[in-house]
């Protein structure tokens, strides 16, 4: 049956995202949830390009293109300007990639949320600097090939847990979401919109080009990331109240890895080690959510 996701479109055809771009799907859903009274701050990332070359814009809401490292700061300024104008209605949203969030924009982001600036920060995560040609970021997962972690030099460091870093700031609302779970995603965006102060959404957005996988699997792989616990769906209120939104079906991470060219060099032993890492992270999350491993606990099942 049809999902309850708004009909209205705030994005146009003809954008220049790659075929199967997960970040484009993410934007579509987020804007459907936010509606017209939204102002997008876009620091350098793929979306700077997807939005269209000047004088085009693919979005039907105002977009402010800004420098790579400034997502948090520019949003703070735009919010202040709107406040001066007496506009409390417009939602200010920073829309940044993982590079612009986990790495170069982290300082501006941390500063803004420490001040509890009233805005939503969305990081669409494609796990590398895709716009400049697939360089590794601190979001690139353990085991991945990128152009800066080539051949046997594949990344042997863990992905930074950005949500926990934001939770440590005790912001009112932080959540993960996935393009494969539109209803959950839309619900979280609406929930974030209703909260005052700094809100952070970490959206998993697959990248067929950079991940070396068939474009038609863009949504499927995003779903598998959730099903395998690689990208759990959860939300945290006020830095303390954890809710896990999806209880996995016990799929093995191997299934997720073997569909993507960026992981094709991994051996069985590597995959086993990654499985252990994923299990460990999941158990840590369960502990934070106060769910004993194996028990169903206070979860809302959404699939």
């Amino acid at each position: 049956m049809e999902l309850s996701v708004q009909d209205r479109e705030y994005m146009c055809s003809g954008h220049v995202g790659c075929p199967g771009c997960g970040a484009a799907i993410a934007m579509r859903f987020v804007l459907k949830a936010l509606g017209e009274k939204t102002m997008m701050i876009v620091p350098a990332c793929c979306w700077s390009i997807i939005a269209g070359p000047y004088p085009q814009s693919t979005l039907k809401v105002p977009v402010l293109h800004t420098a790579f490292e400034t997502g948090g700061a520019v949003a703070s300024g735009v919010r202040a300007a709107l406040d001066i104008k007496g506009d409390r209605e417009t939602t200010v949203v920073t829309w940044a990639g993982d590079g612009g969030t986990f790495d170069i924009g982290f300082q501006a982001l941390s500063g803004a949320v420490e001040r509890n600036e009233d805005f939503i920060y969305v990081c669409y995560d494609n796990e590398a600097y895709m716009n400049t040609g697939v360089q590794r970021s601190s979001s690139t997962p353990y085991g991945a090939w990128t152009t800066t972690t080539p051949g046997q030099e594949w990344k042997k460091l863990r992905k930074k847990n950005i949500v926990e870093a934001l939770v440590a700031h005790r912001i009112p609302y932080a959540a993960t979401a996935s393009i494969a779970f539109p209803e959950d995603l839309v619900r979280k965006v609406k929930k974030a919109k209703a909260v005052k102060g700094s809100r952070f959404l970490h959206i998993y957005a697959s990248c067929p080009t950079g991940w070396r996988m068939p474009s038609e699997l863009a949504v499927k792989i995003a779903r598998m990331a959730v099903q395998t616990n690689i990208f759990p769906l959860y939300e945290v209120e006020n830095g303390v109240r954890y809710t896990i939104n999806y209880m996995p079906k016990g799929y093995l991470v191997r299934e997720y890895f073997k569909l993507q060219g960026r992981f094709k060099h991994l051996s069985e032993a590597d995959l086993e080690q990654i499985q252990q890492m994923v299990n460990e992270d999941w158990e840590l999350l369960l502990r934070k959510a106060g769910v004993s491993p194996g028990a169903a606990g206070p979860v809302t099942k959404i699939d």
Partner: peptide
């Protein structure tokens, strides 16, 4: 910007 991407 003054136009959409629909001409692409």
């Amino acid at each position: 910007s003054t136009t959409t991407t629909e001409s692409n």
